[in-house]
């Protein structure tokens, strides 16, 4: 699922994110050009690197690594990158609710 294609000038550092083609999981581009599930390993691009980052995303789409690559604003927190938008934080850390069945639900109520 790609984010709405808004062409706005990039003024803040950004991360390049997408979904993995095969399992749909949220992935982030790292400095060595690989994709990671762990946002803290992601490469933070300076605003003037945005076009270059987006081109890397489009290349990865053509190589059938990822789907719907886009940039999202981010900042360094405790030395590691974290997206600014709430939705992107949820994408980075996973659902805010239990994503596994609760053991308590299958035990005595």
């Amino acid at each position: 699922m790609s984010a709405p294609a808004k062409v706005k000038p990039v003024t803040a550092p950004v991360l390049l994110t997408a979904n993995d083609l095969r399992d749909g999981r949220v992935v982030w581009l790292t400095s060595d050009g690989s994709w990671t599930l762990n946002v803290t390993e992601a490469r933070l691009f300076a605003p003037d690197e945005a076009a270059q980052a987006l081109a890397l995303g489009q290349a990865a789409e053509r190589l059938r690594q990822v789907v719907g690559a886009y940039l999202t604003e981010a900042e360094l927190k405790n030395g590691v990158p974290m997206p600014r938008r709430f939705r992107e934080k949820l994408r980075a850390v996973g659902p805010s609710v239990d994503a596994e069945p609760k053991p308590s639900l299958s035990l005595a109520s």
Partner: peptide, 14 residues
């Protein structure tokens, strides 16, 4: 084609 078979790409996965 995938949507016609019920397969969405959501926030964290298909």
């Amino acid at each position: 084609l995938r949507l016609m078979n019920g397969l969405y790409l959501q926030l964290h996965a298909y």
